[in-house]
Design a protein around this nucleic acid. Structure first.
Length: 191
DNA sequence: CCGGTGATGCCCT
DNA sequence: GGGCATCACCGGT
């Protein structure tokens, strides 16, 4: 396959989730660059009771069943957005939740979007980083190869720098170890 | 630092 | 109508 981006993301969410650590989300807002390094992810899959796609295709989860490399944005708890990178083959219903970023550029814009918060609490949670990058429902289904919101693939991080553990904030399939984060990274949402 | 809790809207049963 | 892949704030330590 010549399309490296699609080839990488077309793998299972369980494989893609650790691979996205060290990759970057790049966003342009009013001509300004806002960028962050992914430091924490979680995998979700159709055969996974914690996944939105578990009960099959619905209008809400339609994007999850589409091609890899697109963004699945969902709204939860009446006020928060979270974003996922769709993975796997078409029809598979799998995605990787982006749970935390290390800010690399545009910290002033992120801080402004976050009500003035600076530092780790600016982007150390899935809804926090969406707020910082101004990602909401209108970005659901966005092609992550296209500006103004792109996923930048970086070389894989060393296996020894990755911690694998159980996912956060779910009530189903709590034992499944599909959360991945960078060891000793201060921007991870929770140790 | 820690745990408890209220805010608030949409999706699916 | 119940539950939710969350967050900020509050009070006690």
């Amino acid at each position: 396959m010549t399309d490296v981006f699609a080839a990488l993301l077309s793998q299972s969410s369980e494989l893609v989730a650790p691979r996205l650590l060290g990759c970057e989300l790049s966003r342009q807002i009013d001509g300004q660059l806002v960028r962050g390094r992914i430091v924490e992810t979680e995998a979700y899959d159709q055969h996974d009771a914690a996944s939105h796609s578990y009960k099959g295709r619905t209008p809400r989860t339609e994007v999850m069943f589409g091609p890899a490399g697109f963004l699945y944005v969902y709204f939860t708890y009446g006020m928060h957005y979270c974003c996922n990178v769709v993975t796997g083959a078409v029809g598979q219903g799998s995605a990787v939740l982006i749970r935390a970023l290390e800010p690399l550029a545009g910290e002033d814009i992120m801080s402004s979007n976050r009500g003035g918060i600076i530092g780790q609490r600016m982007t150390n949670g899935p809804a926090k980083l969406c707020q910082a990058l101004q990602i909401d429902r209108q970005w659901n289904g966005h092609d992550l190869r296209q500006p103004p919101l792109q996923l930048i693939i970086r070389p894989p991080v060393a296996q020894t720098d990755i911690v694998q553990t159980t996912r956060i904030g779910i009530t189903q399939a709590k034992a499944v170890p599909w959360r991945f984060y960078l060891r000793n990274d201060q921007y991870v949402s929770k140790v």
